[in-house]
Amino acid sequence: MELVDGIKELAKYRELLWVWSGRELKARYKQSFFGFAWAVFQPIALTLAFVVAFSYFIKIPSDGIPYPIFSYSAMLPWTFFVRGLSLGIPSIVQNMNLVTKIYLPRMIFPLASIMTSFVDYLCGLVVFIGMMIAYRVELTPAMLFIPVLFLIQIILMVGLTLGASALNVYYRDISQMVPILLQLWMYASPIIYPLSQVPEWLRPYYMLNPMAVLLNGYREVLFFNRLPDLWQVGLALAVSLVVLIIGYSIFKKVEARFADII
């Protein structure tokens, strides 16, 4: 119920969310020579490093898919995830001069971070489409499932960012913890290696991680024209929704005291 009110308020302030996200983007890339290109550099640079390290030095199997597009296909949504969280979680503290001076729905700050990361993601997507053409990845009906996976990812990101950004106002430890946790999380998800390399007995636990389901799902539909295990997708959706509800409740609970605490 509460969540519905939140969505209503957001609808009322959607223009502000839009304008605020625009401000963040403009401010980020102003006075930088390469501008939006920076959004693409990060996943590409990491992918290149992985290509050298894991397909040239050490041979990591990639289920028969060329390693560059194999790792980039997961690196791209993962970078979106990481950027959204690492920009969003400190966003309320960073905007404290505004939080203590003007009223605007405080959700705007973390949500705008996710929006701007999405713009970065779109830039990276252009590169990915180029790779798909270069590696002759065919368009298949299974790819219609991508928006479903993407929506689950958004739900998870919003939930995590809302909850953690609110807690970060109280405990700055959170924003210190985030990079470490994300680093660990990356190794716990099929990004540099395929799911097939995860021992069979570990998989039921491994797939509790929604990002594992989603990243593996992207590969399934992109390269094998088959849907991911729908039970697992359902589980990822359930976990993400629970995270969203908890994150939103935390946010709402402490929101009223932001201005007093910061």
Binding site: V19, W20, K26
Partner: peptide, 14 residues
């Protein structure tokens, strides 16, 4: 970092 013009538009919406 933003210009006066950009800030006016932004601040008005805020």
């Amino acid at each position: 970092e933003l210009t006066g013009r950009e800030n006016v538009l932004l601040n008005g919406v805020i």
